[in-house]
Simulated scan of single mutants.
Amino acid sequence: MGAAYLPYIQFSIFMGNLGFFSNAFFGFILVYLTLFYIKRQFGSYKYLLVNFQVLGFVFASFEFLFHTFLHTYNASLTYFSLSRPLGFSNFTMEWMMGIYTGLYSATICMLAIQFMYRYWAIFDTPKLSYFQGWYYFIWVGYYTFFGVLWAFAVGHFFAMDEFGRKYLGDEILLRYERNISEIPVLGLIAYEGDNIRWRNVYGLSLMTLISTVQYSIIVICGHQMYSGMVTKIAVLSAQHRRLHRQFFRALVIQISAPTIILFCPVFFMIYAPFADLEMSFPSCIIQSGFTVYPALDSVIMMSCVSEYGRALKKLIVNTKERYTVKATKEESRETAHTHGKAVTTKL
């Protein structure tokens, strides 16, 4: 049974690399089309889209650099890395791991902000002024604040102590062939003997509060848009009605797909230690799905909003035309050069 879970580590690393490169590819396409090919009717929303993609790329980059893993064992959930890139100490790496989870929180906050924007765009358009100019930094501060708070909750309240190292030491050595004192590791351990480890509960409560606030915004705005959007957008042009519906559909898919497939299982893993089940499970299998989410998000947006399809076709046509013009000019120069040599030879 020794090192039984190392193949899952390799799979997670592969998924992390795949997520990074796919996000760099699809994210770049979406950002480029948004900035240079999308019409003005997107308004300040285009900056939210770009900001979200940049945040997703940073999220994927952290996983690409640091390769972090989750492991469930009895009354615990362990968060660790088997490497220390850039010569970081264990302490520094543990805080890098905390920041990585904070970036996850920031992406959820960005989705909540997008729902709020779409809601105001339909029901209270004067408030869209809060997304323009210097006001935009309110939202940057919003997702940064909750991201830092989440990172602090993980890095501080889940820091490993002597009891945690004893509790998890043999398990980590058996499954991953590593001495727990030699690798960066954080852990949520529900109980210490018959007592609840309140330090871990405080961190978990903070994470739950942040998630509840964001999902409340998403659910409230989403429900209001679903129930009242048809009436409100009836007075708009057909093009704007279609765009509102497409953005709403994209947002619903953006939040529902990862919530069902990724976020719910992860929150189950976070709370599972309190059931104190006798189990050992490489939770990194589920965690690896997070690494491809930013790229998936880009694909969802470009698939749902028809404006991106038209922009992509325009980009392809323009690229072909540039290459055709360049090839024609080179052919003309080559012909002129050959003709000139022929005339010189005759003379």
Rank of each mutant, 00 (worst) to 15 (best):
M207A: 02
A121R: 02
G141V: 14
A159M: 00
S89G: 05
Y100T: 05
E162P: 06
G87N: 07
E182T: 10
G203P: 00
G203Y: 00
Q214K: 08
A190Q: 11
I122V: 14
M110H: 06
L103N: 05
V154C: 02
R178C: 04
E162N: 08
R84G: 02
A112G: 13
Y142A: 13
K166L: 09
F131P: 09
Q114G: 06
T125W: 01
W150S: 00
F131R: 11
A106L: 07
F131V: 08
D124C: 05
D170F: 05
I113P: 13
V201A: 00
H223D: 11
A121K: 01
P85D: 06
M160A: 09
N195L: 12
I180V: 14
T125D: 10
S216K: 07
M96G: 05
Y130N: 13
I99Y: 00
R199S: 05
Y142C: 11
K166Y: 06
I113V: 15
S211N: 08
N90A: 00
L103Q: 04
R165A: 04
L149I: 07
W134C: 08
H156R: 13
L173Y: 07
Q132D: 10
F131H: 10
I210R: 03
A151S: 15
I108D: 09
G187Q: 12
G169W: 10
V154M: 03
S129W: 06
P126I: 04
Y142D: 11
Y142F: 15
E192N: 15
D194W: 07
T107N: 04
M97I: 09
I196Q: 02
N179F: 06
F158L: 10
S216P: 02
I180T: 04
L209W: 01
W120N: 08
T101V: 13
I108C: 10
I183M: 00
I196R: 05
G102F: 01
Y167A: 06
R199V: 04
F157T: 05
I108W: 06
E171D: 10
T212V: 07
G133P: 13
Q132C: 06
L103M: 12
L188R: 05
T144N: 14
G98E: 02
R197F: 08
Y104R: 02
D194N: 15
W139G: 12
R197P: 03
R84P: 03
A121I: 03
L168P: 01
D124S: 09
I210S: 04
L174H: 10
Q114W: 02
